[in-house]
Design a protein around this nucleic acid. Structure first.
Lengths: 340, 340
DNA sequence: TTTTAGCAATCAGAGATTGAGAGTGCTAAC
DNA sequence: GTTAGCACTCTCAATCTCTGATTGCTAAAA
């Protein structure tokens, strides 16, 4: 059942207004600020009808209307205007990405930080898990008398893991040949194959310990919920809907705990996912995430967590812009004249 | 001016009670629960005297007494009983540390997590900065056609930094000799010396780009305030003193921002530091931190941030216990039979 | 001199009451 | 189908009152 054009305009006015002020809006306010060609009574009739259809509610009988989750859904899918970022906002993005990134972790943290700074919301960023990565190269390097560094390169990321407990008598040459052998065995295999024990079946006497170590390392990196970065969790408190201390507590408890956050984030796997009021652990919240391709560094996701009443147009534009900025960063890096 | 024994007992009763209940305590409650041999009137006289001396205040005239920062100071320094950890608490610590630690970061995060879990307070942990580390070994490894990994080993930690933009034609042998040469130049030098340009003065034509890359990497790791781990920041909201939303916001804003947190934590450099209400950015808070020696992995600090009204005895015991657990972990690691 | 009992005085906090203001739904006219 | 007008409902803030907690002071007792 499609809404009439007038109903849509009124609904959009309600959502726009509520996003801006977080106050229920009255019929007269809609007339004054958005639709002066209609009378208050007409708007009231339409509001009552929209309420019957489930798009609006009233906190109490003598207050204005407030959008429901359904209204936000429709708003995002159909009514909303995307808005362009301002110069200064683009400047902020550039500031964050026009510098040397130390590693993936640095990249993820910067991404979260810039999103939070521009949107003024709590942001999240994380790399996709590495189970489906395909191993391309393994190197083992002795860096201290009894310590070796295992470097496992995949098609999408690089794992560097220090392991102590190396016999002193093993020399560089041993690790060179172990590296070559390990590469020959593991390369082309998915990490999930390796950890499930499907790759190493025969006993490779000489390198058994090395192989065991590699498998142990990969296992420890699987399903790694601790790699979610959350930025600006205190910003959630700036939102009027979380002025209620109990709600604020519940919300922050989820943001604080990667275990609780993991299922909230990892469920959708789309280019752009907008969840509105769908998460039980975060009532009245919306979660907007986008896939971000870091090129060589891997694929991850980033987004924001905020009240349903968030500026979706801005948030989506920001995620879009950051995706592009990271792409540009990747390219500039390759054309850099810092080549060694 | 030393306090009489009776005054100390009364003061200790007030602090103990306030730590437990966060309620102002009245003279009659002190008598009933702590000092039944005294009468209410006598206690009232002493309370008035302690108030004159600056150890107590009254929220309002018909309420009980509340300790001041000075009272907590005296309590920690002199009156407090340290308390032993329970079996189950020690069990929690063991659970966290009896597993393979992936790297320093993993270690720091676990430390923060276990502290927060046991004390039910917000915890922090971080590694000391690396400026004074002495370089012992440098290795450069080609891991992809145009990407090299720089490994810089110091006396206290290991830096692993991926750098793209390597000319394809450079072979393993080149990096082997570059590694050896770099080690010969840099080893024994402090990182601060290298980044301030005091080491590389002559132009080493052949390896200039390599050296520049090393210096750039070290610079990016200096003064690294982003490596503070905060755990359980939402727990601060469980404390009654932060039921005031404005206070909670201010507090969380500091916890959220590593830039603001850095000066709070890095000022004291003692074995055990107890700051009570000394930080402007965190009024009514106490910050307890202890130095934690991770052996090979480096030296760091960990502690808690909470209301002045915290269970100091427990907190200090926990930090102590964790210091020991990490020491034990280090040793067990060395005697492990997983040796390669 | 120190301690204690008793009592008037003080003040916060919880309820109850009130009035103003906001906004609606309904009805009847346009 | 649209609009003006009005009675009705309900929240919110302000005000008041009452109760209970706790003190400091005074004067007597130890």
């Amino acid at each position: 059942m499609a809404l009439s054009d007038r109903k849509e305009r009124i609904l959009k006015a309600v959502v726009d207004s509520y996003i801006e002020s977080c106050e229920p809006i009255s019929s007269s306010e809609i007339r004054d600020k958005y639709l002066p060609e209609l009378s208050g009574a007409t708007i009231r009739n339409e509001l009552a009808s929209l309420e019957d259809m489930g798009y609006l509610t009233q906190p109490h009988v003598s207050s204005g209307r407030v959008p429901t989750a359904d209204a936000y859904r429709l708003y995002v899918d159909k009514l909303m205007h995307k808005r362009k970022l301002t110069k200064s906002e683009i400047g902020v993005v550039k500031k964050y990405f026009n510098r040397k990134m130390r590693d993936i972790d640095d990249m993820v943290k910067s991404t979260a930080k810039v999103i939070s700074e521009i949107t003024n919301l709590t942001s999240v960023a994380y790399m996709d898990d590495i189970r489906d990565d395909v191993i391309t190269n393994i190197k083992i390097v002795k860096i201290m008398p009894t310590t070796a560094l295992f470097i496992i390169v995949t098609d999408r990321s690089i794992i560097k893991d220090t392991t102590a407990n190396v016999a002193e008598e093993l020399e560089d040459e041993y690790f060179d040949s172990a590296s070559k052998f390990a590469t020959s065995i593991f390369s082309g295999k998915r990490i999930s194959q390796v950890t499930s024990g499907k790759v190493v079946k025969e006993v490779h006497r000489e390198y058994k310990r090395i192989f065991d170590a590699i498998i142990a390392i990969l296992k420890s990196y699987e399903a790694n919920d601790s790699d979610i970065t959350v930025e600006g969790s205190s910003k959630i408190l700036e939102q009027p809907e979380f002025n209620d201390l109990e709600k604020a507590k519940a919300m922050l408890a989820v943001l604080d705990s990667k275990e609780k956050l993991y299922p909230v984030l990892k469920s959708g796997n789309m280019e752009l996912s907008v969840k509105i009021g769908e998460e039980e652990s975060m009532p009245d919240c919306a979660i907007v995430t986008a896939t971000i391709d870091l090129g060589d560094a891997g694929v991850g996701s980033a987004g924001v967590i905020g009240p349903m009443r968030m500026d979706y147009g801005k948030v989506i534009s920001v995620l879009d812009c950051i995706g592009k900025a990271i792409g540009a960063f990747d390219r500039s890096d390759e054309n850099d004249d810092d080549m060694i």
